[in-house]
Write a protein that binds this DNA or RNA. Structure first.
Lengths: 195, 195
DNA sequence: CACTGCCTTCCTACTAGTAGGTAGACAAAC
DNA sequence: GTTTGTCTACCTACTAGTAGGAAGGCAGTG
């Protein structure tokens, strides 16, 4: 969090928080302009079109997520811890309201009317996240930490849906604690596992 | 599906499908105007302001849902069947693309920038759905059909999150089958239940 | 019966404001 | 001396919303 962030990074930061709040159609260049004290035209210099801005934003987001999940895999000892760190990340984001929703989950809900260049990137993010969860679950099974009653890919999809659904419920009911109330038991069940 | 639907019903029908596709900010009076061949000003006659239109729409949706769930409770013999009918309803909606997403789930994602009169109604819908699921699970437990490892209210929240998350994943990855792939096992686990 | 007045629905025509985007000038940096 | 970043000023299309009127249905009254 350094004050020497480039203008284009600042634009992306603001745009991201605006998308999290209201989605693709929920923000305008004027909103960004107001937020960082720059003229609308200057934003167009960095990002000629809105679709392009959001496409770059999703790329950056996916890259950051991939890096974070990768470093989790290297640092956190066990797959069980990796999963725990992942949901703890979102719990703190939601509880301190710093980023109360996943950008790509937000955009995914608007999928049907997103420009192609954005839609394809959102899809890629979901695929990447599912792949990471799958590999963590797989590793956990091999180490005897998890016992799944379905294939890791299926279980990963179920877990991912649970996480995004929990975010939505927490937002809908205005209760940040609901996220962990929903996701927590899901993780516990994977650990305890089987019968 | 009769051709004698009133104009205001037609407006709500179109608005609902537009919201499902793109959310609150994803449609305009002009879009509705084009779709049903009526002037913009005529829509304002029926619904003076956009927030009011959507508030009425959510009321109608919640009322229809409540009626549907109530009749399910009366018709479907066992709580297990009631749950099955509920998710089968959404499966068919998603598979034939007639209504590939829940209006209130869509609006919930935009909660932070929704007019108050809309936001409160969306919250009410979530509460109503959670209450229905809770009572069905509760009844299932009493009849020995389900065995839950947590309180019915918690299990209901988990199930609701799973349903909405599954909708989101199906939409994000463009794979309608993903809905049932995620929700199906969740239901099975409730039936089989326990250890 | 005809007339009157009201109500509903829809219309044309308009408003102020906002959307994304462009043209071109200027200053500083490489 | 070109490139980079910002600016002012502008454009067209669209936003929600308003004003006022035309057409028809439907009382109630003479």
């Amino acid at each position: 969090m350094k004050s020497t962030a480039s203008t284009s990074d600042k634009i992306l930061d603001i745009a991201q928080s605006l998308i999290v709040a209201g989605g693709y159609n929920g923000f305008s260049y004027a909103d960004i302009s107001d937020a960082i004290g720059i003229r609308k035209a200057s934003i167009h210099h960095h990002f000629p079109a809105k679709a392009e801005l959001v496409a770059v934003l999703v790329d950056r987001y996916t890259r950051q997520a991939a890096a974070g999940l990768q470093s989790l895999r290297e640092q956190a000892a066990s797959p069980a811890d990796q999963l725990q760190f992942y949901i703890d990340y979102w719990r703190s984001c939601i509880e301190n309201a710093s980023q109360p929703f996943c950008v790509c989950a937000m955009l995914a809900s608007e999928m049907q009317m997103l420009p192609d260049e954005v839609a394809s990137r959102v899809r890629a993010h979901f695929q990447g996240l599912a792949a990471w969860l799958t590999s963590v679950l797989q590793a956990g099974v091999e180490q005897g930490l998890f016992r799944l009653d379905k294939r890791p890919e299926e279980q990963a999809q179920m877990l991912m849906a649970s996480v995004h659904g929990a975010m939505l419920s927490a937002r809908a009911l205005g209760d940040p604690g609901l996220f962990i109330a929903v996701v927590g038991p899901e993780i516990v069940r994977l650990r305890a596992a089987g019968c």
